[in-house]
Amino acid sequence: MTSYSGYSKPSYGAGGGDEGNGFYGGSQTGSQGQGGQKGFTDESLRPVTIKQLLDLEEAYPGAEFLIDGHPITQVTVVGQVRAVTPQQTNITYRLDDGTGTIDVKKWVDTDRPEEAEPKYALDQYVRVWGRLKSFNNKRHIGAHFIRGVDNFNEVNYHQMEATYVHLYFTKGPIGGAGGAANGNYNTDGNAGAGDSMFVDQYGGGAKSEETAKLGSCSPGARKMYQFLSNTSSSNEGVHLNLLTSGTGLSTRDILGAADELLAQGLVYTTVDDETWAILDY
């Protein structure tokens, strides 16, 4: 986890995918596959606008991407689908958030043929978690996870959150002396309820939000969440095999439960797509 200033929060989806197959294990290269290894603890998630991704500069080809002087590993954006291009190995969505447009590539798992069909229609709003990539001087996002936006408040919230974080880095924390922030900011990027970051910043409500989200999940998802809460003691999380043996749920049930918890922003994938950890509130 990358740390910035007095505010601390675990990254959402601190595992995820690389450009080749959608997932990676252990330590990995930086944001766009440049030289130099980044460990798991260097992972962070930052809410951004598309313009921020298009305007940032690389110190040299292959250097890590920086926004406001801080490296970015994973990013989250919210935008409207303007074009959909299905291909054999991936589905490319052209995303527009009002500040710019960028391609988002979601790699298809060959073991899950249903993933080859586009899930999101033109003009639909979606939230994307992923990594900024650069190929032939053109940037795109390699998506780990995409979900539809059901409440338009999330669109407005994301723009506010991206602005807040930018000001945090450039002006310092609220009530601080100003200047670039050092030390601990991470956000879960899950704006579905529209208040997670600001509630935590100003106090109260975060635990009740977690409880409300869990209450809308199936019994299997709640059982998986409870097992993770009682078992996971590190950022590496708990693997599918241990979950099936520990909960008595089938592999299919665990995968379904994981999808529910991911959609609610309650867990994230870690070293691979079959290992999950709790997103602490």
Rank of each mutant, 00 (worst) to 15 (best):
Y4W: 10
G6W: 07
S8W: 05
E19A: 13
G20M: 14
T29F: 01
Q32F: 15
K38W: 01
G39M: 13
F40P: 09
D42K: 01
E43I: 14
E43M: 15
T49M: 08
Q52F: 03
Y60G: 02
E64W: 08
I72E: 00
V75G: 04
Q80T: 10
A83F: 13
T89N: 11
R94A: 13
T101K: 00
I102Y: 02
V104N: 05
V108R: 11
D109N: 09
D111E: 10
D111I: 12
E115Y: 01
Y120F: 15
L122E: 09
D123P: 11
G130K: 04
K133V: 03
H140L: 02
I141A: 15
G148M: 04
N153A: 09
N153C: 06
Y157K: 02
M160L: 08
T163M: 10
Y164D: 04
H166S: 14
H166Q: 07
F169Q: 07
P173F: 06
G178W: 01
N182M: 11
N186C: 04
T187S: 07
T187H: 03
N190Y: 15
G192K: 15
A193I: 09
G194A: 06
S196V: 11
M197I: 06
Y202M: 10
G204M: 12
E210D: 06
A212L: 13
A221M: 02
A221F: 02
N230M: 09
S234I: 03
N235C: 05
L242A: 04
L242R: 00
G246N: 08
G246Q: 11
T247K: 00
R252W: 06
D253P: 03
A258N: 09
L262M: 14
V267T: 10
V271K: 12
L279W: 06
